[in-house]
Design a binder for these strands. Structure first.
Lengths: 263, 263
DNA sequence: CGCGCCTTTGAAGGAGCTCAATTTAGGTGG
DNA sequence: CCACCTAAATTGAGCTCCTTCAAAGGCGCG
């Protein structure tokens, strides 16, 4: 649902390092940044281009609709009317769809602070998955109609938005590779390295972090049973590539994990 | 890369039936349609809204850049500079990425007439996969810069474009489900039903068609070995759900295939 | 403190993979 | 027109990795 992917390796999520947003013209953007200062969504909200003061005001108002979501609650559910994109400011979400049988559900992605949720709803104007908070979270609701209108006047915003969607398409292709070709070891290695990278991208530690999701949710996402996830984590620990204590993970041998993936 | 997905079932490709493009105002659109009369890309090219004559002229010029691609040749390759989207007018393409080892490649999608290719390149301005013609094909290159400029003036085009990208995101989620949860039988059933639907959507027969790709390419796409694809097709034939003669497929029991998928 | 959920670990079974041999189709040249 | 050649498809056999079923241990929360 949200997240980032580099071009070559197929990780579940990660930032594409190419084409960083152009450097900000500091004076003009300062105003907006102060409004969204704690929001990591600069990429979308702050195209960092030649915005007029009026445009900035507009953008500022646009992104100001903040909400708190408690752990276990849903941000939106399948078939909900699509009205906004959601920038995660704090917390952690899973996206999942109900399977045909209706009992189990399939996790399609995880979203953390600085990432955008809800793009699935643009096509049909209804969401196609449930977005559920895995911990107490804050989101910034971005009214889609307003975003569109604004984007019409600010070409760079328009462009950023399209890039974000394209990146999501490429990300999912990465997951596709992951699911169709990799062994359990490789999947977990990719998963952990990607999480590490994303936590680091938003001020966390790349080598120590708490998993917000259960083994079952990891398994659902990676196409493995929860037992296989657990066993594989234990195996990686025995090989001293990682440390595992329940949900607390330490990356002990970053290079070793990369080697495991195959390059 | 291109293709369509309904919301619930997770097929590799299919059209979302909801939210059809609004009915055309026949008089105004006739002009454009004649220019792109044989092009099935009305959804993108012809937003069917209140276009001025000048806008129509512009759109007309925009989509006029047609090319022939011979079987086996590539429309674009990984890392190629991204300049255009491609509407398939005739023929059949596969999209694939080279795997890390560099030897095998992973098929990420198939595109047929009436579908759009190349959205992967929007983010980084370079393509992330190879698009290769599986038969002699015609495409309509849509310069992206021009499309963007045009979309700025025609909100409905803008909207159509975003919906197309969103649909691609949802489609890939469907493939994700397919790969992580389904058995070989189910994958093939989904694959064949989806092809059937898409061929039918563009004037072909829903019950008889020639596969354009090899068993290996199907397997790569579905996350199965080519042997398993072959074996599974034979099994479906024994159960009299389909007819198989090499690449020629007949759907004998549409309902039976659907039942196989699980609803 | 006890209950429920999550996790870990073991053992058995199965779906699909790999390796290998054979058949078929389609294209090429004599 | 036929023989040949190569690529694709089919089918078999054994094996492997992962799943399922089962049981026990750990952590957090009321």
């Amino acid at each position: 649902m949200a997240g980032r992917t580099p071009v070559r390796i197929p990780p579940p999520h990660s930032r594409a390092p190419e084409n960083p947003a152009p450097a900000c013209a500091p004076g003009k953007v300062a105003l907006l940044r102060s409004a969204c200062s704690t929001c990591n969504l600069r990429e979308l909200c702050l195209p960092c281009c030649n915005l007029t003061r009026a445009e900035l005001e507009l953008a500022n108002r646009l992104a100001f609709n903040r909400t708190h979501i408690r752990r276990g609650e849903s941000l939106f559910r399948t078939d909900d009317r699509f009205t906004s994109l959601y920038a995660v400011r704090k917390g952690f979400f899973k996206s999942a769809v109900l399977l045909r049988d209706g009992r189990r559900d399939q996790v399609t992605g995880f979203s953390m602070a600085g990432e955008v949720l809800g793009m699935d709803g643009i096509d049909t104007a209804r969401h196609t998955c449930n977005a559920i908070a895995l911990e107490d979270s804050d989101v910034c609701a971005i009214p889609f109609a307003g975003l569109q209108k604004l984007a019409r006047d600010i070409p760079s915003l328009q462009r950023q938005f399209q890039r974000m969607m394209s990146r999501e398409i490429v990300r999912e292709q990465g997951v596709l590779l992951l699911l169709s070709q990799m062994t359990a070891d490789e999947r977990l290695a990719v998963f952990l390295l990607n999480l590490s990278q994303r936590f680091a991208a938003h001020g966390g530690s790349p080598s120590k972090f708490n998993l917000r999701m259960t083994r079952e949710e990891i398994g659902s996402y990676l196409g493995l049973s929860l037992e296989t996830v657990s066993r594989t984590l234990s195996k990686l620990r025995e090989e001293e590539l990682i440390g595992v204590q329940q949900k607390f993970i330490r990356i002990l041998d970053h290079a070793g994990l990369k080697r495991l993936i195959g390059r």
